[in-house]
Design a binder for these strands. Structure first.
Lengths: 153, 153
DNA sequence: CAGGTATCCTTGCGAACACAACTAAATTAT
DNA sequence: ATAATTTAGTTGTGTTCGCAAGGATACCTG
């Protein structure tokens, strides 16, 4: 009463998929813990600061931010709330369209980001990048490109 | 005032790492949504059922389960609470060690799992496995092995 | 075999998220 | 111009999670 191939993953498929899930879970947990304990900055907050710092005018619309960190709109609202409370970010109205708000990274935000960055990058290298050679990195990067449309559909 | 290579990821490194994060987020969200809407079974619950069904006696200690699904102990306690409420799982005491509780999948749990499985596997194939050839899968599986110890340390 | 320690699981608590309903502003249509 | 629709963002509600603390049982040591 089993249709074999459609109801089972091969051991190889299982390793690739389950490993992906496990790796992500362990990595994110560890990196988050690291960042949180050494700089009081959870990973999601770090990533928002990173995006804002990299943005053309050190600011992004709330909705752009939501897309860029792959979070829901309401998630971003409250995430920016938390960042604003710490004065790492400020909200600015937009003159041309008064519905939109920009989130802009502050000087203090940039300092916090600068201090946290080495920690985070060291972690990403030690826990992730380290384990791939250059060919593998290329292969990975290409693969993520391939499954991007499928995922966002 | 910047130490270049230690404070920046190369574009390739960034693609590999950021892609990994984005891919995971999008994939899990989509698979979870799929499973939830078609079978009322969130991904985490599905995975617990899967582990229990695959276990030697259709049961695992709570702590084994926690390690196997890479969740905190308390997370598993409440996840099993939810499963028990739906009667997909039962808790059983252990005679040899009265501190431990086994979580055992029930007949109903196995039926739900069996019904959900094709949906989930189709999703995993379509959204993830599809995009890798066999060599890449092998390379991936090997890589996850490599970074397993680093992550759990 | 008593006292301390370690292990297994649960519970209190707070943080973070998604979904849906909502307000305000802009755009489009009549 | 005004009404309907769309878009940007926030807020209410419920869910899930991790951490830290707690209770019970097992183990270990003198």
């Amino acid at each position: 009463m089993q249709e074999s191939s459609t109801t089972r993953l091969s051991p190889l498929e299982l390793s690739a998929w389950a490993g992906f899930l496990r790796a992500h879970s362990a990595l994110v947990r560890e990196l988050d813990r690291e960042l949180e304990t050494t700089h009081g900055l959870p990973l999601t907050q770090y990533e928002v600061l990173l995006r804002l710092d990299a943005a053309p005018e050190k600011r992004l619309r709330m909705s752009e931010l939501a897309r860029s960190v792959l979070l829901s709109q309401s998630g971003v609202t409250r995430l920016v709330d938390r960042l604003e409370r710490q004065e790492l970010v400020v909200r600015e109205p937009c003159a041309e369209d008064r519905r939109v708000l920009y989130a802009r990274i502050t000087g203090e935000g940039r300092r916090r980001l600068a201090r946290a960055r080495p920690t985070h990058l060291a972690g990403v290298r030690a826990l992730f990048l380290q384990h791939f050679d250059e060919d593998e990195l290329r292969s990975l990067a290409a693969a993520w490109e391939r499954l991007q449309p499928a995922a966002s559909a």
